[in-house]
Design a protein around this nucleic acid. Sequence first.
DNA 1: CTGAATTAAATTGTGCGCAATCTAATTGCG
DNA 2: CGCAATTAGATTGCGCACAATTTAATTCAG
Lengths: 140, 140
Amino acid sequence: MLCFAVYSVERRFGQLYRELLAPWKLSYTQYLALIALSNDDKLTVGGLGELLGLDSGTLSPLLKRLESRGLVARTRAAHDERVVQLGLTDAGRDLYAELDDVPRCFGDRTGLSHEEYVQLLALAKTLSARMTTHKEKETD
Amino acid sequence: MLCFAVYSVERRFGQLYRELLAPWKLSYTQYLALIALSNDDKLTVGGLGELLGLDSGTLSPLLKRLESRGLVARTRAAHDERVVQLGLTDAGRDLYAELDDVPRCFGDRTGLSHEEYVQLLALAKTLSARMTTHKEKETD
DNA sequence: CTGAATTAAATTGTGCGCAATCTAATTGCG
DNA sequence: CGCAATTAGATTGCGCACAATTTAATTCAG
């Protein structure tokens, strides 16, 4: 019941983002990647994956699609040819600048009060942190 | 930020269900379908889709997979050959009976207090109801 | 009754999410 | 140095989510 409610909300969010991002033909995950890259222009595929909790199986094709649209640059790092350095192109930065209304539109459309927003954000962050697979880093 | 938190929680939930349901090789959505069918043995594809908010593009292949495993029966309705009547087979009911621990396991693993649970459920239900596309029924 | 709309499912195509596997570069131990 | 482990990323394969199209059955207007 709880799980279904969360599952439903997540899909509504996804549908709303699909609608909001449709003019730019971006998926929600692509949007997340652009946000991450606009905040840190020195991310690698691995670093981005750690931020978003996604692996190369998801990110590699996604990033290649963004690269093929000229929005993202992928270059092998000189010091370690295994590593792929990511960055926004000028076109990517321009497109990202056009998206600055999206978060506000999203907020408006959810119709959440400030109180509800804060509650939900707190619960969600707590939960996802608590449930994070601890296999990942094991910094013991 | 909120959307990302919800997106992350939903994926954690999905990962937890994948783990819990792995012994039966069921996906979360398949599990939802079994729950729905065990509660109402007279569902059609459309009726199930309305319950879960999914369309035939998702449900048709999913139900065929469950049918091929002998868990679900699909029969064209006599009164209207367009309609597919769904139901659990005996094997489906047996398998469903084995799953009765899953919700409790899930609850335990989220580590939510009763208060948090109630809060989150209320917020999620409110949100998904509020955001439900009103194109669907338009019972005006 | 007949042909146009409507309806229920199925199908097709795209992208995400993830497990498993593969490739190539790097590290590290002898 | 030389070769076995490790590491970063890419690839493959499967299932879900969803838009768009298709198929076939039913309904309805004339």
